[in-house]
Computed example of a mutant assay.
Amino acid sequence: MRGMIERITSALDANGLMLRGGFAFPDSDAPHGASGAPARSILLVGQAGAAPWRHFLRWREQQPQAIANPLDTWSRETIGTVAEKFGARAVSPSDKPYLPFQQWAMRAEGLKPSPLGILMHPQYGLWHAYRGALLFEDEIELSERADAIHLCDACVEKPCLKSCPVDAYSREGFAYQTCLAHVRGGNGEPCRSGGCLDRNACPYGTAYRYPPEVQAFHMASFVRAAS
């Protein structure tokens, strides 16, 4: 089984993706695997920084320009190919009905949410993502997970709650409509072209910060999804 994990890691790495931990399901909350039987194990698939971007752009050049949610589609296809090769079922955070990806991620890697809701990683900061998961009907032996340091606990200033000009994020939560109106408005160009100012203000994981064009892509997706 360890050799299989290494081969999965290699297949994902060819597309800028990576394994993000995993765990065994108790019988009570297991989704179904490839054959329809309950899954016994899960491996989370994601990214650190913008590693998949060039792979995604190369794929995107071959697709119709009007394709909806291209990054989700690329992720599904890429992870689905790996799943088929290794006898797993691929699932995505955007699948409906929605699966508990954030809970799975916290369970797999021991992470906690930042004040922005994004899980804080001790190495990547806020600059990482989960693109899908592989569900196996066999139990996979995984290394014991160590609890991650939650960097937000040591951050006194909380610049992530002070940089947005409309205070979209606060300790009370995310003011979705306020954020959306600002990004769409005349003063929202810095957000549209360079990403969320609160997220960019976080001092951790800056070596993995998404380039401006990647952040602009995600911000455009955020605005489009609300239309």
Rank of each mutant, 00 (worst) to 15 (best):
residue 18 M to Y: 00
residue 119 L to N: 03
residue 83 A to H: 13
residue 4 M to K: 13
residue 34 A to T: 06
residue 96 K to V: 11
residue 171 R to E: 15
residue 49 G to S: 10
residue 159 P to L: 04
residue 148 A to Y: 02
residue 149 I to P: 11
residue 88 A to L: 12
residue 34 A to W: 06
residue 162 K to I: 00
residue 145 R to H: 11
residue 81 T to C: 08
residue 25 F to H: 04
residue 18 M to V: 15
residue 129 A to Y: 07
residue 128 H to Y: 11
residue 112 K to C: 11
residue 103 Q to N: 11
residue 100 P to N: 09
residue 148 A to D: 01
residue 46 G to H: 05
residue 148 A to G: 09
residue 205 G to R: 00
residue 13 D to Y: 03
residue 215 Q to Y: 04
residue 24 A to I: 01
residue 99 L to Q: 04
residue 120 M to T: 00
residue 57 L to Q: 15
residue 174 F to I: 11
residue 15 N to C: 07
residue 105 A to W: 15
residue 45 V to Y: 05
residue 143 S to N: 13
residue 223 V to Q: 13
residue 185 G to R: 06
residue 92 S to Y: 09
residue 4 M to W: 07
residue 80 G to E: 07
residue 41 S to T: 06
residue 174 F to D: 08
residue 150 H to L: 04
residue 142 L to G: 09
residue 188 G to N: 10
residue 133 A to E: 04
residue 89 R to C: 10
residue 213 E to L: 10
residue 96 K to C: 04
residue 112 K to I: 02
residue 163 S to R: 06
residue 103 Q to P: 00
residue 180 L to K: 10
residue 154 A to C: 03
residue 118 I to N: 09
residue 104 W to D: 10
residue 116 L to K: 02
residue 158 K to T: 11
residue 77 E to V: 12
residue 19 L to P: 03
residue 60 R to G: 10
residue 178 T to S: 12
residue 213 E to C: 05
residue 50 A to W: 01
residue 207 A to I: 06
residue 2 R to C: 03
residue 133 A to M: 06
residue 66 A to S: 15
residue 191 C to V: 13
residue 34 A to L: 13
residue 87 G to R: 10
residue 218 H to Y: 15
residue 11 A to G: 07
residue 51 A to W: 04
residue 155 C to W: 06
residue 140 I to R: 10
residue 55 H to F: 14
residue 214 V to W: 02
residue 84 E to P: 00
residue 161 L to K: 10
residue 62 Q to R: 15
residue 91 V to S: 07
residue 112 K to W: 08
residue 15 N to F: 09
residue 201 A to N: 05
residue 75 S to A: 15
residue 54 R to Y: 07
residue 217 F to G: 11
residue 104 W to K: 05
residue 207 A to M: 09
residue 138 D to Q: 09
residue 211 P to T: 09
